[in-house]
């Protein structure tokens, strides 16, 4: 019974990981920018929702505010930080350090403005009840899964049915096309940032209701997204999403076998093992460079 409980809980967490990871993978795949500040989109979306909620806005308006905050941040990063760096042909690590700097700045600004420490949205949706003997589930379990499924269906429809979506996918699968696309790659890059960052918002809103927020939460989100993107195989959205789900489940189910303090390390053990034994991930093509 413990196993089933842990599995279900893992799926709830994993659905949220999958969403943020897919956003990161979309950006990384299409632009080859290691968007280390992706977690900040998550933080901003969460706090935007929190402020809206506390101001008495309806949930959908708050969620919209969250999506908007995440998207605007992603776009701003692309225009103000990444593009100038890429113009100098800055290395992958230059991007990494710049993004990290932004993450530090925003995290502290959020701390100054929103207060440091824990903040959560109080809603009965996160309160679990016993649905079966020994199995506790909260309404948010179904919401998380529903939101994840709907968004993935919508995203894959966009990526396969629309012109811009197909272009994005082409970029992800063949990075060399980035140059061949010439001018329009700029607009595609903005599109990727907008979409990818927006993907972090629903997970942030749900997290505000469940585990709650703090100004440093983006850090963890970022690490998980990065791990999921690698495990899933760079360039594969489906892979990243599946890997995010798997990491969430692994982190939870591991408690069946090991003591509680090891839960966090499990995700990274999985990541490390994948890199050593299957560097191409679930679906990726082997790329060593």
């Amino acid at each position: 019974m413990l196993f089933l409980q842990l599995l279900l809980q893992g799926i709830q967490t994993g659905a949220l990981y999958a969403l943020t990871a897919a956003g990161f993978a979309l950006i990384f795949g299409a632009t080859r920018i290691f968007h280390f500040a992706h977690g900040i989109s998550f933080t901003l979306a969460g706090y935007a929702f929190l402020f809206a909620w506390n101001a008495g806005w309806p949930w959908w308006a708050g969620s919209l505010a969250g999506v908007l905050a995440a998207t605007l941040f992603g776009l701003a990063m692309e225009r103000v930080v990444y593009r100038p760096i890429q113009r100098h042909e800055g290395s992958f690590f230059t991007v990494f350090v710049a993004a990290f700097g932004v993450a530090v700045v925003v995290q502290n600004l959020v701390g100054m403005l929103a207060g440091r420490g824990f903040a959560s949205v109080d809603t009965p949706l996160s309160r679990a009840t016993e649905v079966m003997p020994e199995i506790f589930l909260a309404p948010i379990f179904w919401i998380a899964i529903g939101v994840a499924v709907v968004l993935f269906v919508a995203l894959s429809a966009f990526l396969t049915r629309t012109h811009a979506g197909v272009a994005l996918r082409a970029l992800a699968q063949n990075p060399d096309l980035l140059r061949a696309y010439g001018l329009s790659s700029n607009r595609l890059s903005m599109l990727a940032f907008a979409l990818g960052s927006a993907m972090a918002a629903p997970a942030a809103v749900l997290t505000a209701m469940t585990t709650g927020l703090n100004e440093a939460i983006g850090h963890h989100v970022m690490l998980i997204s990065m791990a999921a993107t690698i495990v899933g195989g760079v360039g594969s959205l489906r892979g990243a999403a599946l890997a995010g789900l798997m990491l969430g489940v692994a982190e939870s189910v591991a408690l069946q076998f090991v003591d509680t303090q090891w839960a966090e390390a499990v995700s990274f053990l999985v990541l490390f093992a994948f890199i050593i034994f299957r560097p191409s991930g679930f679906f990726g093509v082997v790329q060593t460079r």
Partner: peptide, 18 residues
Amino acid sequence: FSIPRTAQQFGPVAARVR
């Protein structure tokens, strides 16, 4: 139940505590 200082998810821990 020992937890890392940076842990955020406590659902699984709660299951073990129960």
